[in-house]
Design a protein around this nucleic acid. Structure first.
Lengths: 185, 185
DNA sequence: TCGAGTCGTTCGGTTTGACGAACGCCGGGC
DNA sequence: GCCCGGCGTTCGTCAAACCGAACGACTCGA
């Protein structure tokens, strides 16, 4: 799984790549991560073997998960057999989902605006294995999550959870709506 | 994803857990990983902050991916409350973007909550070639789009446009915010 | 042109992680 | 009894990760 790669150069490349993606300078990143510029400079140049704490603080400052800094960008071959495409859930009386952009065969992500009215909660079956839901509440209040782990959200709140286990949505106020990003791996 | 946890204790627990899962002694694991027993002993006791190389060799010897040693057992659901999460500053003081979830190494897909105040428009440089922006306005009014093709959006409105050409955002009302999905490649 | 600011790199000094050897502990033979 | 093998921990030494300061190069404004 993680055998062959000596992660020294991988980390160096990942650090520079992610930093430039965020669009900040080396000095600025060092500042946010609480490190010396010299340390970060050596890391990005491939010299040195950072401690976990050091690399962790960089991951936090960059807003990326730890693994993105150590694992090489894995070009991953993936097959979706015919008939296994994501199925849209049928509409419920108090639930509307508007498909904004559907994932093509290559980019499997769907973006919805979801409108809900208070009342009966919407039970969602498990989707495809590996699917992940991201939700940002735009207005109203929403109770959502996997069974027995529901959370209550207000405007601006964000939540993510696996889509491949049973979960449900329930609006707590009229006019509740949210942006839903469905990822299918 | 990787925010709050100081991974010292997490690593200690993960090492002991994985080692006992394999069913080998501390000395044996140190032998396979090419480390000194003392080093591993201190790591499992929570003392010390291993280098990436050290932890990597342990992951190889244990036959587990690197991330299993540093990330706590993944919670099913994760919430970022409004106004929390890492904020990306911009060249203008009236623009904030909060990174909600960063795409994995191969799925470059970042989800933001973007807050804007009226006034000077934010000029966005072209991003990586092939990137696409999706935007859903949650509150306020927003003028956005590529140069000379701007559109005006209200709550619930959705727009998508290429991110690899120059474009800009401009809030028309106070308290304007939107959900931004950035796709790369 | 000069000055102030930021950029990223390089250079000693200090902290600390990793090593090897020794330690005490426990269980099984001869 | 005694010794032997392996276990996990502790201690002193050494290399190196990290730091702070200084450096030259560059960009703006005055």
């Amino acid at each position: 799984m993680s055998q062959p790669a000596p992660p020294l150069a991988t980390i160096a490349a990942a650090l520079r790549r992610e930093r430039e993606r965020v669009g900040i300078s080396l000095a600025e990143l060092a500042r946010r991560a609480g490190l010396a510029k010299s340390t970060l400079s050596q890391l990005e140049s491939g010299t040195g073997n950072p401690s976990v704490e050091t690399l962790w603080s960089l991951g936090v400052a960059l807003g990326v998960p730890f693994s993105r800094l150590v694992e090489p960008p894995a070009p991953l071959i993936r097959v979706v057999r015919a008939g296994q495409g994501p199925r849209l859930q049928s509409d419920h009386a108090d639930f509307f989902a508007t498909l904004l952009t559907a994932g093509s065969a290559h980019t499997r992500r769907d973006l919805y605006v979801m409108e809900l009215e208070p009342g009966a909660s919407r039970e969602a079956d498990a989707h495809l294995p590996g699917s992940i839901e991201h939700l940002v509440v735009a207005a109203g209040r929403l109770r959502v999550g996997p069974r027995h782990e529901e959370v209550e959200l207000g405007p601006g709140d964000y939540v993510t959870f696996p889509g491949d286990i049973a979960h449900h949505y329930q609006a707590l106020e009229p006019g509740t709506w949210a942006v839903l990003l469905m990822e299918h791996r």
